[in-house]
Amino acid sequence: MTSMSMPRSMWTVDSRTIVYAAIGAALYGVLVGLFKIPVPGTTAVDARPAFALVPFFGFAFGPVVGLFTGLVGNMIGDQISGWGALTSYNWSIANGVVGLLAGLAPAYLGSMMSGSLGRRAAAGAVGGAIAVVIGFLVVFSDMIKDQMDFNAVLTTEYIPVVIGDLIVTIILVPVLVYAWEPVKERLGR
């Protein structure tokens, strides 16, 4: 009898990582511009349901996939909308960092991960939320890049985007974890 088991590190980059990363980025790039929901009380930034892909892909498939989904997905979304992939490159980096941090969540939320599906779904929400709050700090680089005012970045960019994306993350990431895990069990790998 040959018994094979392959430990797969969080940082492995194989066909699986590459395909998930590409799917995440493609989905995010396509969907992010499609529906935007205005959040009352904020001006410029909307809740973008497709954003949930970034923390979810990070949480479910690891930091490498999360980083790529956020970074490349955001660039593609910007490019499709005409904004240009590199015009706001620092925002793409911010999205990538969110995916990366969400991918690290299973490591530091160890106790939540070993529980029931419900606990893992909650872990996805918590890990995603932390990633959003920290990851989007990157957008303060607009103060250097575009000479934006600190208060302007804080009130027109950071706070609205974090509020919108927290709503989306907390609602949708657990739903996606719930839907995906049973499917994963059936795939045979």
Binding site: M1, T2, S3, M4, S5, M6, G188, R189
Partner: peptide
């Protein structure tokens, strides 16, 4: 099998005379 699907294999598969494992 076995390179991408982990599981339990017995017997042998030879391709061009060499074991796939």
């Amino acid at each position: 099998i076995p390179h991408a699907y982990p599981g339990e294999l017995s017997g042998s598969v030879r391709v061009n005379g060499r074991l796939t494992t």
